[in-house]
Write a protein that binds this DNA or RNA. Structure first.
Lengths: 336, 336
DNA sequence: AGTTATATCTAAATCCTTTTAAATTTCTCT
DNA sequence: AGAGAAATTTAAAAGGATTTAGATATAACT
């Protein structure tokens, strides 16, 4: 049973391929096809399991109705939640989502961007980049395809983006800790620390200390490598507590670190401290609702990132948004 | 700066489009292009930022190098982990992944399947279906496109699938509870319960009771609706404990239910029981490593599902696998 | 009726590859 | 040198839609 094509419809209906194509694409009026003919065609085709060949259509029109999404790790609930919301918006508008994980690997990201932005397989690309600077993205041959950055952005690169207010959220939660009585707050940061999100959070932390007149001490900021979180957190805490017995709060810059921190503090080695330390985390996860330990957290509007980014992308594709659009979503502190 | 195409290369290199296309596709030898010419072409093109138009290629060859993935909820870590592994395998082989979430909505699943299986936009579809029976999938017009089911399968539908041994895992963990001394074990199931995964887990639970000579009692099996998990679990526990004061273990059929259960048991209302109840869960999540409560769980080889399904899909696409392939992966009990 | 304007419809070009079938060049051998 | 075989290369067709430019039918007007 061969696939039907316009040629077949033309024979069966007695109208030209041209006319049928016009009607099927809703351009009947525009091209002056009579109402009678239009309904005749639509009725006849409705019976007939015909769908236009996507490739032929894309070849001719240059539109694929695909949007690409590039993130560091699609299995990370943060990104998969964004993906879900993007997919939802796109589906409503007849678009499909192509998802790729870079696994924090710059080489893979390059290949993916190359493929998506240069090979015109997609109508637009939404990306959370692992890159440090914009030189790669800032090439003329990439400028043809609409681009929206999410979550992370590149310094000095003028493009569309939807991010959250990492600086503000961080400032707020650390200030909250201070008001709650904390005097010495450690910060467990993550490398690669050049990511805009991390940088902003660290700056928020520092500025909160300044504003609240606490002593700044770089020894209180520890780097946790994203590939060895558990071990690094444990070492960091051991060091911190040895050097700063008066430590009274720890601020984890993301949920993975907070999770590792909670695990660490349950060990016998730390049992004397566990009760005394307040814990804060940038990112709010279900776990915090289940454990006894009270964790104060910054909740990010994750769904909103996806929704905003995809709507923005569609506007750009449709030519409704010509200037670069920059969206910064605000966060909320969750006390417990 | 216009996109380069074969025509341009032809003019610049002084060879025909045909020859260049052949060489670029690695078919130089096959078509008897001289070694000298081949290297000349390859060298010249390497300088020139040319990539073939995907749509023209797909139109001519009928291959899109896209594989579709349809799951109930891409933001669910279970599925997003599968997605990540699928994407990884596909990327290595030059394929891309198109991801769609049905949101447990049959209508959306129909539209997606229609689009993917009937509109030949993708070379194959991997799906975790929300459907109850196979009548929709079992249509001749869908048979053209390779199909691999994952996680959930449809009764009596002869197709490729990669699933885990839900029955066996369930049997094992419940037997484990019994050996550990439990005499009365409740089961928190989830609706829609016709999903093959759920059905198998319930059957494993029942058979474990029989094998271990415990009394079966349908009153111990509670249905939790997937859209009101927290409330349903709380009600279920209230009922169970009222009617069965000697209850000594609760078996949650998935991680969401276990999470809700843990939250519920922390409430004052249940504090007298919390210590006495053993908890088991089908699915192993990081949370269980962080909380004090010892949860025994069934760990599923989630990554393996994705890897197996995508490798199988590629084999089918490449014609290496003609018979239907059925893979059942086994689980592991994690004690704590 | 004959011409012009208007409403409908269609043939052919186009998008850019890959592949088939055929043409050309080179080589081998008498 | 010339015929036939082998080695290279290319012109043209095909894939299936959309769109341009043009054709035909109908209406309107003198």
């Amino acid at each position: 049973m061969k696939r039907l094509q316009l040629e077949d419809l033309s024979k069966q209906l007695g109208y030209s391929k041209t006319l049928i194509s016009m009607v099927l694409n809703g351009k009947g009026n525009q091209y002056g096809i009579s109402k009678k003919t239009q309904t005749a065609v639509l009725d006849a085709v409705a019976q007939l399991d015909y769908t236009p060949n996507k490739f032929a259509k894309a070849l001719r029109t240059g539109k694929s109705y695909f949007v690409g999404l590039i993130v560091a790790d699609i299995s990370n609930p943060f990104y998969s939640t964004i993906a879900k919301n993007i997919e939802h918006v796109l589906f409503e508008r007849g678009y499909n989502l192509m998802v790729c994980s870079t696994e924090e690997n710059e080489e893979k990201e390059k290949r993916l961007v190359e493929m998506m932005l240069n090979q015109q397989g997609v109508d637009g690309v939404i990306v959370s980049t692992t890159f440090k600077d914009s030189s790669f993205y800032d090439q003329p041959r990439f400028a043809k395809t609409p681009l929206v950055f999410i979550d992370r952005l590149l310094p000095l690169f003028n493009t569309n983006y939807v991010v959250i207010d990492n600086y503000g959220g961080s400032l707020e939660i650390v200030s909250h800790l201070v008001k709650d009585g904390s005097k010495k707050i450690a910060c467990l940061s993550i490398s690669p620390s050049y990511l805009s999100t991390i940088e902003d959070r660290v700056n928020g932390y520092k500025d909160a200390l300044i504003k609240n007149k606490l002593k700044q001490d770089n020894d209180l900021i520890k780097m946790i490598h994203f590939e060895s979180i558990n071990a690094d957190v444990e070492n960091a805490m051991r060091e911190l507590l040895a050097r700063h017995p008066d430590l009274d709060a720890v601020y984890a810059l993301n949920n993975h670190i907070a999770t590792a921190l909670l695990k660490t503090l349950r060990k016998k080695e730390f049992e004397n401290y566990n009760g005394k330390l307040k814990i804060a985390c940038f990112d709010d996860i279900e776990l915090f609702n289940i454990i006894d330990k009270k964790v104060v957290s910054v909740s990010q509007p994750i769904e909103e990132i996806g929704k905003n980014a995809s709507l923005l992308m569609l506007d750009i594709i449709d030519g409704k948004q010509v200037n670069k659009s920059n969206v910064v979503l605000s966060t909320k502190v969750i006390e417990r």
